[in-house]
């Protein structure tokens, strides 16, 4: 069976050929992941395996950098760097702070 990432040859619609630049948030995630990688905490192959393990639903629903964020989160828990509890608490705190400063556009729900 094909993994969710294995899309070569599948039927799809037109390609959106205009490239759009990265948003501030996407650059932050890219930089964070590169910094964590430079520390030797995760390597390219672990990253690829983590994205492929997201499963069809998450893989097909999430945007590119959302996938990378989800996998970084999982990797940090698996490697004992962070705990799910402290991440959940910080997510709640960040959400409150962004709501206070008007930077929160919508109340995105946890998956």
């Amino acid at each position: 069976m094909r993994g969710p990432h294995d899309v070569g040859g599948l039927p799809e619609g037109p390609v959106e050929t205009e490239a759009h630049p990265l948003t501030f948030w996407e650059k932050q995630i890219d930089g964070l992941r590169a910094a964590v990688g430079a520390k030797g905490l995760v390597n390219t192959h672990e990253n690829r395996a983590a994205v492929e393990a997201l499963g069809h639903d998450a893989y097909n629903t999430l945007h590119y950098y959302e996938r990378w964020t989800a996998t970084l989160c999982r990797q940090m828990i698996e490697k004992g760097v962070l705990t799910q509890d402290e991440i959940d608490a910080r997510v709640a705190a960040v959400r409150r702070r962004l709501a206070d400063t008007g930077e929160l556009e919508t109340e995105g729900g946890a998956p």
């Binding site: 945007h63 962070l82 991440i87 705190a93 930077e103 995105g108």
Partner: peptide
């Protein structure tokens, strides 16, 4: 474009 739209963007800031 810099507004926070999704749970994952918040997760990224938290991480």
């Amino acid at each position: 474009d810099d507004k926070v739209h999704s749970y994952y963007q918040i997760l990224g800031v938290a991480l």
